[in-house]
Design a protein around this nucleic acid. Structure first.
Length: 517
RNA sequence: GCCCCCAUAGUCUAGCGGCCCAGGACGUCACCCUUUCAAGGUGAAGAUCGCGGGUUCGAAUCCCGCUGGGGGUACCA
């Protein structure tokens, strides 16, 4: 008997950040697609999937202490996990390139021995000069292969003199290299345009190119999903695999993410790092949803995807090769949508609390249902979640619910359009009277009493409601008046109305713009 | 300069030869709801499918050229 045997060849993908700073949002999108391929598409196609995290810390000059921890932390927050990595280990440990230098050195030596590489003794100064001369002559800049064919005697002499050297790859001078990209098809490169790239630096550390190829092979990576900025080095890498006699992984270059005006996304346009979006109150779920749709779509119609939806639906084949512009406005909309329609109230309350604590409106954590302010925050959140675009909007929007005292406000806000100060004062006094006998917990009854009061005063309901709203919130915009009163509570409402009356009495209207002759 | 990639409304996209005088979403505008502001509902405007040639009975969809945008061009990744 026989079964339809699924292709058991595992899909092993990796994300390989260098610890030089914060995690760029473009990198996060690449992480997401890698993660979805390994954890969603692969199992659906009957293949084992694995997502590997590897730290590419071979540039000692740009290394930033703590950056690795930051990157791992923000990825966990984002909601992805990895099967192998510097913190969890795995069959191909270590996962930090600075701890694997012997491996790269051995491979560079092997290439040297096989004649696929050579020692280059050129100084940075000479390289610099060559480049300048080439530019002056309007020639394409690039290494002039000065050391490619040094005589054995010359090399011996240089080595004996202790001259520092790098190891360069001996690139074929003619022919062409075809790069097959899963999203773009075949891309052809003329070998004469490929550089003799540096594999091993003077300091003994490998360059990205060497370390990357060696590790992807050693770690049995099956698919490389990386940013499109790597397309030009793909033929270089393929030549390297070839020289080693290895089969190269499949390649898929993710479309670039551009800034609103065009060009690279940079600080000038807004936030660019995951850490910033986090501290600005974006939800990981919303970020994931937005990022997934930047370069990928299921059907062009579905807009909201949970993490599970993405695992169920993502396919690499539907990633578009064309670059996209990062739209901060749509990200805000997505975030707002999750806050208002997706998150459970308790969950949202918990997420908003750290931002409130940071603003000094509530006590610091731990944040759970036992927190002293949980219930109050929950009530306020229920009323305001429909106008929260980010969690960071919460302190400003909720202050009048949570702070005992109102921020100072202009008493003019108390006066509705087409009403005078004296009318308003009279209205507020009537309101104060009514507040003494009304139960704010009963919204419907309260509303009925206030409507009746408006009627007896000959006021449109809106003109009675606005002075209370302003008195109680210090502003002219708020959720529904009666739910707002209920949440603020009997005692504070009465006090604030009393204060409003006092401040309006003391208030001197600004000189009206002289109704000139 | 040279090499390479990309090209549907302001933006993200659906479309993979006829179902498209192009569908969805954000944004914009209008109306509805309404005690304010949101949210929500309904609707509208907005795309000569970058341009020019082909191929085909038929092209947004295939081919070529051009233009535009972007990326690369380090002992950085």
């Amino acid at each position: 008997m026989s079964f339809a045997v699924p292709d058991p060849s595992p899909i092993r993908v990796r994300f390989a950040p260098s610890p030089t700073g914060l995690l760029h949002i473009g990198g996060v999108r690449t992480v997401l697609f890698n993660w979805l391929l390994a954890n969603g598409q692969a199992p659906r196609e009957g293949k084992p999937g694995a997502f590997i995290l590897r730290i590419e810390d071979t540039d000692r000059n740009r290394f930033v202490p703590g950056a690795e921890e930051g990157i791992l932390g923000v990825l966990r927050w984002f909601g992805v996990d990895w099967d192998e990595g510097p913190d969890v280990g795995g069959p191909h440990a270590p996962y930090r390139q600075s701890e694997r230098t012997a491996l790269y050195q051995a491979h560079a030596q092997a290439l040297l021995a096989a004649g696929h590489a050579y020692r280059c003794f050129c100084t940075p100064e000479r390289l610099q000069r060559v480049r300048e001369e080439q530019q002056a002559r309007k020639e394409p800049p690039g290494y002039d292969r000065f050391c490619r064919d040094l005589s054995p005697e010359q090399i011996t002499t240089n080595l004996a003199a202790g001259l520092p050297f790098v190891i360069r790859f001996r690139m074929p001078l003619e022919g062409e290299t075809a790069v097959h990209d899963l999203l773009r098809g075949e891309m052809l490169f003329q070998n004469e345009n490929l550089e003799d790239l540096v594999l091993l630096k003077t300091d003994g550390y490998p360059t990205y190119h060497l370390a990357n190829v060696v590790d992807d092979h050693e770690m049995e990576i099956s698919h490389i999903l990386r940013g499109a900025e790597w397309i030009p080095s793909a033929p270089l890498h393929l030549r390297l695999y070839d020289a080693f006699g290895w089969r190269a992984p499949l390649l898929a270059h993710m479309p670039l993410i551009l800034a609103p005006g065009g060009g690279k996304l940079s600080k000038r346009h807004g936030s660019t790092s995951m850490e910033e979006f986090r501290s600005q109150g974006y939800l990981p779920e919303a970020l994931m949803n937005y990022l997934a749709l930047l370069g990928w779509s299921l059907d062009g119609t579905t807009e909201i995807f949970s993490k599970q939806d993405l695992l169920d639906k993502f396919t690499l084949e539907r990633v578009s090769p064309s670059p996209g512009t990062f739209d901060y406005v749509k990200l805000r909309w997505t975030n707002q949508y999750y806050i208002n329609h997706i998150l459970e109230l308790d969950d949202l309350t918990l997420r908003v609390m750290p931002f409130l604590a940071q603003a000094g409106l509530i006590l610091p954590g731990p944040y759970d249902a036992d927190h002293a302010d949980f219930t109050r925050v929950r009530s306020a959140t229920a009323l305001l979640k429909d106008r929260l675009e980010t969690l960071a909007d919460a302190p400003e929007l909720m202050s009048y619910f949570l702070a005992p005292e109102l921020e100072p406000y202009d008493p003019a806000l108390l006066i509705p359009k087409k009403m005078t100060r004296d009318d308003t004062l009279a209205a507020l006094e009537a309101i104060a009277g009514l507040l003494a006998e009304v139960d704010l917990e009963d919204e419907a009854a309260t509303e009925a009493r206030f409507r009746a009061l408006a009627d007896s005063l000959g006021l449109k309901p809106g003109n009675l409601f606005m002075p209370i709203r302003a008195a109680v919130t210090g502003r002219t915009q708020s959720p529904g008046l009666f739910e707002t009163l209920r949440v603020i509570g009997q005692e504070r409402v009465r006090a604030r109305v009393k204060e409003a009356i006092a401040s309006l009495r003391a208030w001197v209207p600004a000189e009206p713009a002289a109704a000139s002759v």
